[in-house]
Design a protein around this nucleic acid. Structure first.
Length: 258
DNA sequence: ATGACCGGGTTACCCGGA
């Protein structure tokens, strides 16, 4: 079972690129972030024509998340992260497929830091940590994937010294990410590639992609059950080189059957 | 150190993104 995550930066602007990537990469499950489209503007029919069922939670202008599946029934379980009914931002959607709970998240960016946006990011991380505690106690296979907006370590950014004050790299958020892996969640890319420089995002400007000035901010966290089932992982970096592409590249893992 | 590139939409001398 191949599971992918892709911050599309606008589902409608990205539709041709998304469909082309789906046909070449052929993931079974896809988590999308930054739809930047209200609920009724999601291109469900075009995606269905490509062979994928969708569940999504849109929002006008910003945010928005979706889960697509190929040849598998989708049962939508949740469209928000528990813990704050007042939070109106569409940043989490969750479903269960083939006995695996799939959480698709778009964590707040948090810049500028410090400030109210950074405070929101930290609150979101607290809620997320409380929820991951709950998920671990379920004692079942769980995949949490998406755009975490967290650079976990110095190896995950081209010039760490320039990012020290940034909301993606500040000690509070790196510590929050570390607390998840210490809790038992497996960073799938790092599990398979402990020392390699691997990026998932490159700015549109400053010639970032051609200079490979990137960040690793899109992640897969696996519950301990899935460690023995993880067989492969990677970044579809070639998609970032396409015309009209997102500033993120798709990231994927392969899980073998039990 | 700085700029500049995208998508959405109030089509702007706008905003947010990372």
């Amino acid at each position: 079972m191949k599971i992918a995550t892709y911050n599309v930066n606008g589902i409608n602007a990205r539709l041709p690129v998304l469909l082309k990537w789906l046909s070449t990469s052929a993931p079974d499950i896809v988590c999308l972030q930054e739809l930047k489209a209200p609920q009724e503007k999601f291109p469900e029919a075009a995606i269905a024509e490509a062979g994928y069922q969708s569940v999504w939670h849109g929002q006008k202008s910003w945010n928005g998340v979706a889960i697509l599946t190929r040849n598998m029934a989708v049962h939508e379980l949740a469209v928000s992260l528990p813990g704050d009914p007042e939070d109106a931002q569409s940043r989490y959607i969750q479903t269960e497929i083939n006995g695996v709970l799939i959480g698709c998240l778009y964590l707040p960016n948090g810049n500028p830091a410090p400030g109210t946006k950074f405070d929101y990011k930290l609150r979101w991380l607290e809620r997320f940590k409380a929820y991951t505690d709950t998920l671990l106690k379920l004692d079942k296979p769980v995949v949490l994937t998406g755009d975490f907006n967290i650079i976990p370590d110095e190896v995950d950014v081209y010039k760490p010294e320039r990012w020290l004050e940034d909301a993606l790299f500040r000690p509070e958020v790196r510590s929050a990410f570390r607390s998840l892996t210490e809790q038992g969640w497996i960073d799938a890319i790092r599990k398979l590639y402990p020392n390699e420089t691997i990026y998932t995002f490159w700015d549109y400007f400053r010639g970032s992609f051609s200079r490979n000035a990137g960040l690793r901010i899109d992640h897969f966290l696996l519950s301990p059950h899935l460690e023995s089932r993880l067989t492969a992982a990677g970044v579809d970096k070639y998609v970032r080189a396409w015309e009209k592409t997102s500033d993120h590249a798709p990231v994927w893992i392969e899980l073998k059957d039990e």
